[in-house]
Amino acid sequence: METRPDDVSDVTEVRGDAVAEAAVVPAPAVPAERYAPRPPTSLSPSRAGDFMQCPLLYRFRVIDRLPERPSEAATRGTLVHAVLERLFDAPAAERTAPRATALVPGQWERLRESRPEVGELFADDPDGERLATWLGEAERLVERWFTLEDPTRLEPAERELFVETELASGLRLRGIIDRVDVAPTGEVRIVDYKTGKAPRPQYSEGALFQMKFYALVVWRLKKVVPRRLQLVYLGSGDVLTYDPVPADLERVERKLHALWDAIRSATETGDWRPRPTKLCGWCDHQAHCPEFGGTPPPYPLPLGVPASEVAEQGRMSADQGARVAAEVPSEAP
């Protein structure tokens, strides 16, 4: 999730490739109005992933809006994304590895200015040794990118592109795409950078779920199926590609409708059940989770959403909805 909201109303986004590295730390004090409870109004790849992983996690993030303190791994991902985005501001011939790594300190300062809370990550590092190591790790990830792609031969049509569409059913989908390349022939490639390692082959479908989500949005918006989906794993130096077809995206659309039905049903009933997995060890909300002896906050929304606002056909309870995740394998750290 790198900390970068792909649902612009979600201020505590944590990208999935950082989950395995993220440390569980106490949440910082945050003004309550910043996290005012609200019912879900749209679906992003990260929020869909949250619900498939654990309906209660979805509730904590979307409805309760419990604060989450940024981790070193997530923040490093945000930094690397910013560097790779800014590099394309330079002329093609000047997009070199030394220029890219030279951007790291400046982008770190920009990140600290825009999100002061990330500076707390190194509050116990008065000599700056841990920060220097952390920045060096970010530089190595940036350098590795040059072994996977040649930016001197790329002219992205879009970078950090916010996309949003409303399906015929009324479901709104939104997200932020790292990079969109458009060939002279009009073919579209969607590219996403991951600072973690590539999944094992049996888990590649789960890794591609986010990309198929984006492809569906682009298809519905532009009436063009992207020619290629490309995941660039900087942690391991791998590139995962997939060429979607309309049938793939139609399956994703059906899956998202099923998830949304389950989310709306849980919103109506207040039935948000935990789904224990190995990922629970990295969750910030153990103090509120029944699986760890905690108690969720009082449910902040009125129960009993009008029936006209809830899909009646194929409606699922929250724990049934979580089992939709079986269609998209997820790899435990």
Score class of each variant (00 low, 15 high):
P116C: 10
P290Q: 09
R76V: 08
A92Y: 08
D261L: 08
G119E: 01
K194R: 04
V218Q: 04
L79S: 08
E268L: 10
R59G: 04
A258T: 00
A23F: 07
R227N: 04
A318R: 11
R172D: 00
E113H: 15
P91K: 02
W272F: 15
V218F: 06
P276M: 12
A27K: 07
Q107H: 11
A36V: 13
G170A: 08
S71K: 04
D284H: 15
E129K: 15
H285F: 15
A326S: 08
A90M: 11
R34K: 11
W145P: 01
K278Q: 14
D64M: 09
A48L: 07
P70Q: 05
L43H: 04
P244Y: 11
E164Q: 15
P37S: 15
P296I: 10
R200H: 09
Y193K: 02
L259T: 04
G314H: 11
D64H: 15
Q53K: 12
D127G: 04
A326D: 12
A74R: 07
A332P: 07
A311E: 02
S204N: 12
L103S: 00
G128I: 08
E164N: 08
L208H: 10
V305T: 15
P201A: 02
D238W: 09
E327K: 07
C283Q: 15
T277G: 09
P306T: 05
L56A: 07
L231E: 01
H257I: 07
V182L: 05
A20Q: 11
L66Y: 07
K222W: 15
I190L: 14
M316C: 06
R323E: 13
A311I: 07
S265E: 14
L171P: 02
D319P: 13
V14K: 13
V62T: 14
K222A: 14
R38G: 13
G304M: 11
E129D: 14
R130P: 10
T241C: 00
W260R: 02
M52N: 10
L259W: 03
L221V: 10
Y193W: 10
K223Q: 03
P151G: 05
T267Y: 09
L208R: 13
P151F: 06
E250P: 08
T75S: 13
L249P: 03
R315S: 14
T133L: 15
A311P: 10
P156L: 01
T267H: 13
V217C: 10
A23H: 10
D181Q: 03
R159H: 00
P116D: 09
L161C: 04
A266Y: 07
V118P: 14
E68W: 02
R144F: 06
A20L: 11
E331N: 06
V14F: 12
E13L: 12
K212L: 13
L256A: 00
A132S: 03
C289P: 12
T101W: 02
R264Y: 05
E139L: 05
L66V: 02
V104C: 11
G186V: 02
Q313A: 10
T185A: 08
E268T: 14
V182Y: 05
V163W: 13
W219K: 03
I63N: 13
K194Q: 01
R200P: 03
P151K: 06
P156Q: 01
A311D: 01
T101S: 00
R86E: 13
D243Q: 01
R112T: 05
R227T: 03
